[in-house]
Design a protein around this nucleic acid. Structure first.
Length: 295
DNA sequence: AGCTTGACCTGGAAGC
DNA sequence: TGCTTCCAGGTCAAGC
C-alpha cells in the first residue's frame, strides 16, 4: 500500500478537485471493505461541502461542512480516481451488471470551478476502510500513532526513548506506527540502507547505556526524512496498481536502492555488494550485507 | 510484556 | 494451456 508518500500524493491529487466541492450523492456497491461502511455514511455525506483534504500518517482525512471528518485508509490496494468529469448522472456501468468489480464507493461531486465529476474508491483486496468521526483525533486509529516523520517531533531523542531496551529488529521497530507513523516496508528498507544500518540489529543497540541516541540513530532520522521527501517529490512509488488521483504513476520505484532489487549491485559508491532478500516478521526485507552494518 | 505469526482478500507472476 | 504455488505497499488478533 500506499505508505506515507503515496497517501500524500493521493491527498495532493484530490485536494484541488474536492476542496469546496459539494457532494451530491454517494453510492456504496457493497456493505463493507475491511470493516462495514458506517451505517449513516451516505446521509452524512450527501449535501455536504468538502472543507479540507488532509492526511495523518497513512490516513486521508476529508473535512465536511457539517464538522464531521471522513477517515479513509487505502489498505494495500485502495485507490481514488475521478471518472467522467462533466456529466451529471452516474456512469452507465452503475445501472448495469458491468460495474467494475472493485469500484466500491462512488461520490458524485460538484465543484464551483471544475463542475461535476465522479470520485471512485476502488480496492481489490479490500484491506482499506472508510469511517466517519465528529472528532477524528479521538478515533482509535489516530490516538496511538507516533509523530509524523517529517515533523520536528520525529528526532533521534524520540527514537532513543522508544528503542531503549527494545530487542526487536530495527526493521520491525520502524514499522511500528506507535513509534513513528507512516513508514512501511519500502521506505524502511530504503532508509536503513541510506543510514548503512543492518535491518536485523536490535533496535536497542542504537541507544547508549545512558539512553542517548548513537550517531547511527541520528543518521537514521536524516535518512528517513530524506527518502520520504524525495519520494513525495516524484509522486510516490508505483509497483503494481498504485495510481495517483489523476490516474498517473509515481516514479520513486526507479530510485529504489534495495527494495525489490535482490541480486542487483548495491548502488552505494565503491561498495560492490549485492542486494539480498530475507524475511523478517513474515515480510520481505532487502538490504546490502556489504555496506549495512551493526554500528 | 514483547515479539512473531497468521489471517484478512484478490490478482498477477512464476513454476511445472 | 492450465493448474498450483508464491508473493504483494497494511494492520490487527492470537499465539508463543
Amino acid at each position: 500500500m500506499p505508505e506515507l508518500p503515496e497517501v500524500e500524493t493521493v491527498r495532493r491529487g484530490l485536494e484541488p478537485w474536492l476542496a469546496q466541492a459539494r457532494i451530491e450523492s454517494v453510492t456504496l456497491n457493497r456493505a463493507n471493505l475491511r470493516f462495514p461502511f458506517p451505517k449513516d455514511l451516505v446521509p452524512a455525506l450527501q449535501g455536504q461541502t468538502i472543507t479540507s483534504v488532509g492526511r495523518r500518517a497513512k490516513y486521508l482525512l476529508i473535512g465536511l461542512s457539517s464538522g464531521q471528518t471522513v477517515l479513509s485508509h487505502l489498505g494495500m490496494t485502495g485507490s481514488y480516481r475521478f471518472a467522467e468529469h462533466g456529466i451529471d448522472k452516474p456512469p452507465r456501468y452503475y445501472e448495469t451488471e458491468n460495474v467494475p468489480k472493485h469500484d466500491h464507493m462512488v461520490w458524485i461531486i460538484d465543484h464551483p470551478e471544475h463542475g461535476k465529476s465522479h470520485l471512485i474508491y476502488a480496492d481489490p483486496r479490500r484491506f482499506g476502510f472508510v469511517d466517519l468521526y465528529d472528532r477524528p483525533e479521538d478515533s482509535p486509529y489516530l490516538t496511538g500513532l507516533g509523530p509524523e516523520p517529517l515533523s520536528n517531533a520525529f528526532n533521534a531523542d524520540l527514537l532513543a526513548a522508544a528503542f531503549t531496551g527494545k530487542k526487536a529488529p530495527i526493521k520491525a521497530a520502524l514499522l511500528d506506527q506507535r513509534v513513528v507513523a507512516g513508514l512501511g516496508n519500502i521506505y524502511v528498507a530504503e532508509a536503513l540502507h541510506r543510514a548503512h544500518i543492518l535491518p536485523t540489529i536490535q533496535a536497542g543497540s542504537l541507544v547508549t547505556t545512558r539512553g542517548q541516541p548513537k550517531r547511527a540513530l541520528e543518521d537514521l532520522v536524516s535518512a528517513v526524512r530524506q527518502v520520504l521527501v524525495e519520494a513525495i517529490e516524484v509522486g510516490g512509488s508505483t509497483l503494481r496498481d498504485f495510481r495517483n488521483a489523476e490516474g498517473g504513476n509515481g516514479y520513486f520505484q526507479h530510485r529504489f536502492a534495495v527494495y525489490d532489487r535482490e541480486g542487483e549491485p548495491c548502488p552505494t559508491p565503491m561498495c560492490g555488494g549485492t542486494i539480498v532478500r530475507i524475511v523478517q516478521s513474515g515480510r520481505s526485507t532487502f538490504y546490502c550485507p556489504a555496506c549495512q552494518k551493526q554500528p
